[in-house]
Design a protein around this nucleic acid. Structure first.
Lengths: 343, 343
DNA sequence: GTGAAAGCGCTAACAG
DNA sequence: CTGTTAGCGCTTTCAC
């Protein structure tokens, strides 16, 4: 490594600015941190020097000195299913955009399922997107006192902020709707059941059936990993059953689209021969020949909410305030993919 | 903010470890940095103390002291089209995974199209995913001497590392293949032409037609923003043309899937009535009723390559080595969505 | 209002 | 092989 001066200095420092402006480093620091007590004249001189020297304060030094960090770490388990989804990108988009606006640095961490220990040094807050096999990482963050929030996973047994989607309720809405239309044989294509979202949707499906006194038939439940490939396989099996189900609730829109495609290939007409409800409100589901009825989940809102909570926790880390456990409601979006059966 | 001791200390420091282990801080530092010159006995004592105190070194202090940073910043323009794509997530996955393995921190920055000035302080290297309206950010990184690499965009006029895909070549392969099958009326559905990838694919399409002495018909070129919605619109228009084109080259697999769907809805059979070639090799394109013939682009490889280059630059930042400008080849993957026309 | 000086946690000569 | 010491760049008392 090439050393220029004495230390490992990288560029202009607050000292250079101070010298150029003819003030002390403290004054420069005050200007940087917008202290109101600096004389306007000095303030201008400093600002000018900063501009001329193209100076940017070293975040490392700042953080070392203050002990505060504005780094938000986003931990996403790198399991297969997640990358099939609309979900991951949408989350990243929501979180990334808000962090940008709030001047928070976003550290992205794709973690393997072994959940190897994370280095939280210098991290001001953590967002866990789902918890899949990396619960120890969450626990470590809590132990270390790092402000944390878990999204898309309702964490019952840990004292931690979490924001989840009402998957059970959403699934029930979907099934209720199908039942209200007159369906009795309703299939379900699940997502990857290692995710809480998928298993809760299954749970909602089961609950709704029970409520309507429809007996659960195992052969009408198809398990997948959220991929289109497995959705296709499931759809093909589903259509071979006789008598065939008149409706199907699919755990994601991407898969629902695939199911629609398969159905059409087999000469079925949607919704006449098969009613379909998805989950996500993925914009893609608008563009088919028949727009998909689906359960809208507020992904962006969930993402933003998590950043907001963290932001507050990071800025005013007074003694731990009570943790928040939020469940965001879903909304059934009725479009064209369902109808009264057998008509 | 709650201050415990004198400074803004957050937890245990190297000093505590040194005290507990009965050695000096230097020795602890040496152990942390795996210097081979530490007596095994001391080494054990230090390791023990570290474990017992649950100590993690402060990255801020480390970086302040060394001037080195292992932070990789990934800059992704937050324009609409990018989020329709398989591409963004795949890139994030490739980069994130390798960064993880190399112990590099990945700072994600979604930048708006105004390309507002970035704070590169403390950033060891930057990966620009595409350059769309944020060229000034790239220039700033170069000026500041931050190791940079641009991916998915061949940058002609700047002294910067870049890794691009041979989009022109890939498009030509696609069209060549269609021509070799006997097609003469070949349409093209473009991606968002603000991206270099999309405009190069268009260029490749045009070149290939020229090579085969097929005149370019403007009405056979449909411009989109990469979304399925616009792909659908394009496909509908395309099918109304008479005589209809016998083949179409689509700038992304996701859109190609939509085109296939539209075609089937209109009672067309793929590939009998319309041959289709996509671009991406998105796994989704395998699962349709007819598997999509497509141009495979090495996204993961591109992602990984960029991290590797950066990693070397960051670790041994000897005087700037010559910049690399890499163009990765594409590969035509022939599956079932094309055939000889009119048979 | 402003400057001097100490210190944040760590690394890197240098001397032993 | 190990300890001492002097910073890295910034913030923050505490006097002036």
């Amino acid at each position: 490594m090439v050393r220029v001066k004495k230390g490992p200095s990288q560029g202009v420092s607050i000292k250079d600015v101070a010298a150029k402006a003819g003030v002390s480093t403290s004054t420069v620091s005050r200007v940087i941190n917008k202290f109101p007590t600096v004389k306007e004249k000095n303030r201008q001189k400093v600002l000018k020097a900063i501009k001329e020297l193209n100076f940017q304060p070293s975040v490392f030094a700042q953080r070392l000195a203050t002990g505060k960090s504005n780094v938000v770490m986003l931990v996403i388990p790198r399991y297969e299913g997640i990358f099939y989804s609309f979900y991951a990108l949408e989350l990243i988009r929501g979180i990334g955009t808000l962090c940008d606006a709030l001047k928070l640095d976003l550290l992205l961490h794709l973690t393997d399922s072994r959940g190897s220990s994370l280095n939280f040094q210098g991290v001001g807050g953590v967002i866990f997107a789902d918890i899949i096999g990396n619960c120890n990482q969450l626990k470590e963050a809590i132990v270390r006192g790092i402000p944390s929030v878990v999204i898309n996973n309702y964490v019952e047994d840990l004292e931690v902020n979490c924001i989840a989607i009402d998957n059970v309720g959403g699934a029930q809405q979907a099934v209720d709707y199908l039942v209200s239309l007159g369906h009795r044989r309703i299939a379900h294509i699940t997502g990857d059941l290692v995710t809480q979202a998928a298993s809760q949707r299954l749970e909602g499906y089961q609950k709704a059936l029970k409520k309507h006194k429809i007996s659960l038939e195992e052969e009408l439940v198809f398990k997948t990993d959220y991929s289109r490939g497995q959705a296709r396989v499931a759809a093909e099996k589903l259509l071979k059953i006789s008598p065939p189900p008149t409706a199907v609730f699919v755990a994601s829109d991407a898969m629902a689209l695939e199911v629609m495609a398969v159905a059409r290939e087999k000469g079925k007409t949607i919704p006449r021969d098969l009613s379909i409800v998805g989950f996500d409100d993925n914009p893609s589901s608008l563009y088919g020949p028949v727009a998909l009825t689906t359960v809208r989940q507020p992904l962006i809102k969930m993402a933003e909410e998590s950043v907001k909570i963290l932001n507050i926790l990071m800025r005013y880390k007074e003694k731990k305030s009570a943790v928040e456990k939020i469940v965001l409601p879903t909304e059934l979006v009725v479009r064209e993919s369902c109808q009264v059966p057998g008509s």
